[in-house]
Design a protein around this nucleic acid. Structure first.
Lengths: 156, 156
DNA sequence: GCTTTGTTGATTATTTTGGTCAACAAAGCA
DNA sequence: TGCTTTGTTGACCAAAATAATCAACAAAGC
């Protein structure tokens, strides 16, 4: 049940773009550097988002990519779907007709429930949610003076 | 996020054993035939359950395997754990210390929530639950006479 | 001791993963 | 115009995981 690097890298790349929302174009090489993703690999990760109209790209000097939709409008379910395809744990959950015994198969029902549980989390989380969490985490780590235990330890 | 055949076959094999609970030993070749699992492969799938004390095995003529615990006592989470290891979508969710930046990583938090959602389903489902669902499904398919639409079509 | 069953470890083919590389296309600037 | 900078595309490849298979072995029962 592991997510491949495609899913992990891709999500980080989209989060990086969301963090730069409103700042114009962001270059792939900068995303690659910040998120520690090989640039030639990142290029392939971006493709499906451009095709899906979620990312706009511009070539040439000072070119780059940026989100076409507000981070609030981009659900994680959509991101993972584009990167990894369906998150269904088994194929027959996507395509019941391909599996003639599916109407008697109880294990299939369970995998279907697992899929719904995963969907529940991914559907209800947007890139904007991630941005806000990140901002909150960074604020906490910045060591507020009046706190007894200095949070700066976190940045070590 | 796909389950491998290990997880699917193994779950079916355990369900098969649960369906024969109380009937003594079941031979691997019968499980293999009913569940359409290659016998030499099934042998390897059974091993971890024997090691974990969930299955008892006896060699020799009329030997076979059987559950050591009541199907009610065997959770799907345990089954999948033994077959596939942790269901965490990313490694850093299992082992936060291995990933020094985890306390700032918001994507990790989301994968952790996904893991919890999956766990929720698998922890709350036992083999006995699957047995009961199966029984109920078969009863429905057996075409109750007073029903207008004959459910026998399902068995085609 | 022979047969039937499960156990174990080695081996293998195929597929998926995780990239890399090179040729290309468009945009901007001298 | 031609050069540089960026993204695009498709071919390619190595490594790892998957999904088995096979053979030698061990125990149990007749």
């Amino acid at each position: 049940m592991r997510l491949s690097t495609k899913g992990r890298y891709g999500t980080r790349a989209l989060l990086d773009l969301a963090l730069h929302w409103g700042e114009g174009l962001v270059q792939l090489k900068d995303i690659a550097r910040r998120q520690e993703i090989p640039l030639p690999y990142l290029e392939h990760l971006i493709t499906p988002f451009v095709a899906a109209g979620i990312i706009k790209s511009t070539r040439g000097p000072q070119g780059g990519v940026s989100l076409l939709k507000h981070p609030q409008e981009i659900r994680l379910s959509e991101v993972i779907q584009l990167l990894e395809g369906s998150i269904a744990p088994v194929e027959c959950v996507n395509n019941p007709k391909s599996y003639p015994r599916s109407n008697l198969c109880v294990t299939r029902d369970i995998w279907s429930e697992v899929k719904k549980a995963i969907d529940g989390v991914l559907e209800s989380t947007t890139l904007q949610d991630l941005v806000e969490r990140q901002t909150r985490k960074e604020a906490t780590a910045r060591c507020k003076v009046r706190e007894v235990v200095c949070q700066l330890r976190l940045t070590k």
